[in-house]
Design a protein around this nucleic acid. Sequence first.
DNA 1: TTATAAGATGCATAAACGAGCAAAATCAAT
DNA 2: ATTGATTTTGCTCGTTTATGCATCTTATAA
Lengths: 257, 257
Amino acid sequence: MFAEERRAAIVEILKGGNSVYVAELCKKFGVSEATIRRDLAVLERMRLLKRTHGGAVPTTFGLESSFEEKRVQNLDLKAMIGRAAASLVNDDETILLDAGTTTLQIALNLRGRRITVATNCIDVANAFIDDPAVEVWLLGGILRKKPRSLVGFLANEALNALHFDKVFLAANAVHVKLGATTPNMLEAETKRRMLMAGEEKILVSDHSKLGLGGICRICDLEELDLLITDIYADRGMASEIERKIKVLYAGEGGAIA
Amino acid sequence: MFAEERRAAIVEILKGGNSVYVAELCKKFGVSEATIRRDLAVLERMRLLKRTHGGAVPTTFGLESSFEEKRVQNLDLKAMIGRAAASLVNDDETILLDAGTTTLQIALNLRGRRITVATNCIDVANAFIDDPAVEVWLLGGILRKKPRSLVGFLANEALNALHFDKVFLAANAVHVKLGATTPNMLEAETKRRMLMAGEEKILVSDHSKLGLGGICRICDLEELDLLITDIYADRGMASEIERKIKVLYAGEGGAIA
DNA sequence: TTATAAGATGCATAAACGAGCAAAATCAAT
DNA sequence: ATTGATTTTGCTCGTTTATGCATCTTATAA
């Protein structure tokens, strides 16, 4: 592996929103800490990341990052779900991607594809910023600063005027009876509109959110066409869910129906 | 095998997204390392690959594009203009900020203020990502990846529904006769809509753009309320412009009328 | 504050590179 | 075929780059 490749891979890791440790990178690439530090130094000069004591964090391009570095939970699971979801997308389709860490993984797996992607998340839009193949539409709206999503009137109005082949929705909780839920009312409303704007409605959620209930209902599971979760989902709960909606289980090798 | 064939074959190998080693290519084609290096040099000049120590990687590797952080021209002047512009904004106002490096400087000088900012630029929105005081609205639209701005139908529709106390517009060229212009038609259309959505219409432009003409006209200078430029503006041109529009000259200490 | 982990710096080494030159291959005319 | 011009190729050698190690300095946390 070339230095160039290694550096690109480091940037790729950080694009998922995670921070990385020097030791972690050493192990992953089988090189010394000195080499990793040199890599991080050049990447920092390129503004592709920000070094910290022990590793590096993504650049929140702009200013001294307020990056509250809580690591993304279940990132590897989300990456698997992202790969599985991306594999469902065909060339020349129009895709609507919800805001969220899982949908960001879908975005990363769609880079280079000949598709049109609309989203209400600036991180998702940014995943394609150096990708000439993908046409990106950003829905407008009020900027929610924590999840970096756009919600509210502008987003809803924009969604009224648009239609997509597939919509990939994220939810904070997925429950057999309560359906898909989220803690924020504005988010819920925008998510409902997103569903309406999509031909094929796909919900993505790693297994940790299954069985949980939130405050604001987005929709019942019957209203959706497909749920993509991971192979660590509880079998009992899974079979209950499967009575209401088709489920895909993403794993190392690929997805199983 | 001809050199041409060999080079085509090398490009073909890289097309799959793989990297190649010089030694590997030597063996494969039965030629010396010097020959392979010459091939790689030729192909790199044709932008068909990117050389690394030991081999080459495909050009679509990502790092390169992010790396071209072309440095902003006249950044210090733009910062002065940004300070001057920001000083015109009052608390509780609603502000519309155009996309551009100068308007980004305005945004940086508005951090912490109790205002609402709408923009069609993700960099401007990001300037407030860690600022709880400023409420940010992002207009939707097609993401233009080089200037990182949002234009087109969604942006225009959103602007129809909104109204702001002040709009700060950026232009690529400002001319006494031709007015404010920009090279991109979609941008021009969205900028026109932005003007319509603002009560007070303010154009910002450092002196290097004065006297230049672009392809797409945004508006005549008479349609605007104020031009903010810097103190290095040519006096002759400045006095001509002043016959059509009020001008503010930003300098080290502050702005002079 | 001190203890500990992480980072910076200088140096050594091996691999890769670039330039120049000569040999070999190719081509264009006779 | 022969000759000469041009291009391509391979080789050598001095230079550069990438990397790891040892040592010294700095940052973080108890």
